[in-house]
Design a protein around this nucleic acid. Structure first.
Length: 268
DNA sequence: ACCACCTCCTGATCGC
DNA sequence: TGCGATCAGGAGGTGG
């Protein structure tokens, strides 16, 4: 499940592979993953000038549009010589170099959208996206959380409040901050929120440095594997002793999400 | 505004 | 061993 560090790794890899190339043809094999009408007609003939990232969204900057791509759980890109599509390849972009950029997504959850280049930051989904932890003002976040009764983990997964965290890095952030994922938002202190932001920034930047995490079925473009899974302290660590207090890590459900927590170090 | 719940999907895993 | 049921989950939508 790609989160900010994994998407950033994909962005950097893809930039080296497709910048300055033109999309000569597009094949959509699973139409539900494309939101835009006449997607193929609009995108053919445009050049790829840049690839940006906002939270977990990839933004391909073209001549007239941006193509917003969200990988959701299992989306992956591959660049290869033109060939027949294989299983789970739902969108194929033919390039002017005789290569194809292929989008592969087993669960078909990823989405593509074309938006006018001049307005894409002013319309959903990007207009609704919260700031990334490094740009988040602690007091502003504290005030918004103060009005909420949901568990802090659910708030941190809400991309409108803060962008980039997913299930893995929320668990890791809350462990490092010593806060229980079920703690209600309105009970968080300013100090709690400061700790959360501080550790979120650290976890995300360190994970990005290591190329993200490679767990379950996720890996970045071209078989690039991340190394941050070796740094995980709670996520996937059920029954393993906490490295601080040696209490076994437990797995619980918070808002329906599998959640790993040290029942001793993390306070409600 | 807030929040709980549903939907989309497939493959892995669980339980009888 | 086999096979149906359950689980996993990011974000958008719905309805209370």
């Amino acid at each position: 499940m790609p989160e900010l560090p994994e998407v950033e790794t994909v962005r950097r890899t893809l930039k080296t592979l497709v910048l300055g190339k033109m999309i000569t043809d597009v094949h959509v094999y699973w139409s539900n993953c494309v939101i835009t009408q006449d997607f193929e007609k609009k995108i053919i003939g445009q050049w790829i000038h840049d690839i940006l990232r906002y939270g977990k969204y990839l933004v391909f900057v073209l001549d007239h549009h941006v193509m917003i791509s969200h990988l959701r759980m299992e989306g992956k890109y591959y660049l290869h010589q033109k060939r027949l599509p294989s299983n789970h390849e739902h969108v194929v972009f033919d390039l002017n170099t005789q290569e194809s950029l292929t989008y592969h997504d087993t669960r078909k959850f990823g989405k593509f959208e074309l938006i006018d280049k001049n307005i894409y930051l002013d319309v959903p989904p990007l207009s609704l996206l919260g700031k990334e932890p490094k740009d988040t003002d602690p007091l502003t976040l504290y005030k918004r959380l103060k009005q909420k009764t949901i568990p802090v983990k659910m708030a941190l997964l809400d991309q409108h409040l803060i962008a980039g965290l997913g299930n893995i890095y929320v668990d890791e952030t809350l462990f490092r901050a010593g806060i229980h994922p079920e703690k209600k938002c309105h009970r968080l202190t300013k100090k709690d929120v400061n700790h959360i932001i501080y550790h979120a920034i650290n976890v995300l930047s360190y994970a990005t440095e290591l190329g993200g995490s490679t767990i379950r079925t996720y890996h970045a473009t071209h078989g690039v594997d991340g190394k941050f899974q070796n740094e995980l302290k709670v996520h996937t660590k059920k029954d393993i002793p906490c490295e601080i207090c040696h209490t076994p890590i437990i797995k619980i459900k918070v808002g329906g999400r599998g959640t790993y927590v040290c029942p001793t170090c993390q306070k409600k």
